[in-house]
Design a protein around this nucleic acid. Structure first.
Lengths: 63, 63
DNA sequence: AAATTTTGTAAAATATACTTGACAAAATGC
DNA sequence: GCATTTTGTCAAGTATATTTTACAAAATTT
């Protein structure tokens, strides 16, 4: 299951996967994999992504 | 920084670290380490813990 | 106070998150 | 149409999350 909320939040900030990756300090492939969905990122990374996109954990990663 | 909200939520359900560990399918040491705080669990584990304790990600893992 | 449960902690092994480099398809801009 | 950026994906390596075994301190129960 893709994470479309993440994809949408990133689009709302007009950021590429590459740019978001740099903001949170991971590789582009990691962001891609998280959006693709077949991935289980760490909570610290999720929090970093949320902060970069001005969202909370519940908004991006809760079901 | 300890995760006291997790410790508190677990106490509210009268569960030992062992019992919570069994509920979410990890070892007792993993739960202990998360409560202790020097740890970076995966989001799937965080979600499983939240569901076991009737809490959301923001309630237990957001700052 | 003795017995039992719970918690804190450590070291070695295993599973998996994440990186790096690379290449092609799709999308966007000129 | 061509050039550039963005995205999807793969394979091999590195870092770290999680397990297992184990032992002692602290708390709880009887």
């Amino acid at each position: 299951m893709k994470n479309l909320r993440l994809k949408s939040a990133r689009a709302a900030k007009d950021l590429s996967q590459q740019q978001l990756a740099e903001l949170v300090g991971v590789s582009r492939q990691t962001i891609n994999a998280i959006e693709k969905g077949d991935y289980n990122p760490t909570i610290n990374l999720c929090v970093a992504i949320c902060k970069a996109l001005d969202k909370t954990l519940d908004e991006l990663f809760w079901e």
